[in-house]
């Protein structure tokens, strides 16, 4: 009797779990499937397979015989936007990785006055709503007289990405055996040598994982970038936001799929590295 009830519960739970994953992935799956749909007006009504939307992103001009494929954005503009995004994400993630790792080392391996202050401070950028950080940086940059552009976007991203890398690398350091570091120091190696030969190789998966995840977060950031980008530089998410506000075009779906695949692949590698047992 009791067993039967437990089996029913466990079956229900299993069914629910599958539904939960469907809820997470079905919307994304639908975008992918219907980016190949030839029907430009009703995305949900399948009228045939096409690659036109992908083709027109990078060609600009209309595809012969398919009026709806006409796309007003020039390919140069799109490449320009993609380049800006990558420059920002690479610079911001690199800087944040160095800063976040250094901070994690300081907090994990040193005792000092004010340690708890730093621990709280590092959580703050993740607790302050994006929009507040965005406007705060906007007022600051304009007030100090730094022209909004590539530089301000990178600085803005470094502030919140450093905390993120800090959390990832700290987790790695906490799970690490410190006896090797002590042995290295006892054998006369300097702190720098110990770090390079002993600590760094052990935390490397965490550092690389943190870098990749920071890279993707930077690449995808909308809100903070929205306020501090200025008029001259546009990142990929801002570009897509502007396109979405002008009206839905099938090309947005195709571009969305490309970005989605890229983000998911890089984030997967990052997550796998982050989760690898030390």
């Amino acid at each position: 009797m009791k067993n039967k009830r437990q089996m029913l519960w466990s079956a229900l739970l299993k069914g629910y779990g599958v539904l939960f994953l469907v809820f997470l992935y079905l919307p994304l799956g639908l975008i992918v499937a219907f980016s190949f749909n030839a029907n430009p007006i009703n995305v949900a009504e399948w009228t045939g397979f096409t690659l036109d939307w992908y083709a027109t992103i990078f060609q600009g001009a209309s595809v012969e015989g398919n009026f709806d494929a006409a796309f007003t954005e020039s390919p140069e503009r799109i490449f320009d936007v993609i380049r800006t995004s990558f420059v920002v994400a690479l610079s911001a993630a690199s800087a944040a990785t160095v800063i976040g790792t250094a901070t994690a080392l300081a907090l994990a391996r040193h005792k000092f006055f004010g340690k708890r202050f730093y621990q709280a401070l590092l959580l703050l950028p993740m607790l302050v709503p994006d929009i507040v950080l965005g406007i705060a940086l906007l007022i600051f940059f304009v007030g100090v007289g730094i022209e909004l552009g590539l530089m301000t976007i990178i600085i803005g991203h470094v502030t919140f990405l450093s905390s993120y890398v800090f959390v990832v690398v700290s987790a790695r350091l906490a799970g690490m055996d410190t006896t090797l570091e002590q042995a290295s120091a006892d054998l006369g190696a300097g702190p720098l040598t110990t770090f390079r030969r002993v600590t760094l190789p052990q935390i490397m998966p965490g550092v690389v994982g943190g870098f990749l995840l920071a890279f993707i977060i930077s690449l995808d950031d909308v809100v903070i970038t929205y306020f501090i980008a200025g008029v001259g530089s546009q990142t990929l998410p801002l570009f897509i936001l502007a396109m979405m506000r002008r009206g839905l075009r099938p090309q947005i779906t195709a571009l969305a799929v490309l970005i989605l695949l890229f983000s998911l692949i890089v984030a997967s590698i990052g997550l796998i590295l982050r989760n690898r047992k030390p």
Partner: peptide, 26 residues
């Protein structure tokens, strides 16, 4: 891993998916 992964899918694109789901011809 599967549950964490969507967090790293672009925020805009996840909203866009719902735009396609919910609109009158969605």
């Amino acid at each position: 891993f599967l549950i964490t992964l969507p967090f790293f899918a672009s925020l805009l694109i996840r909203i866009y998916a719902w735009l396609l789901l919910l609109r009158p011809t969605g």
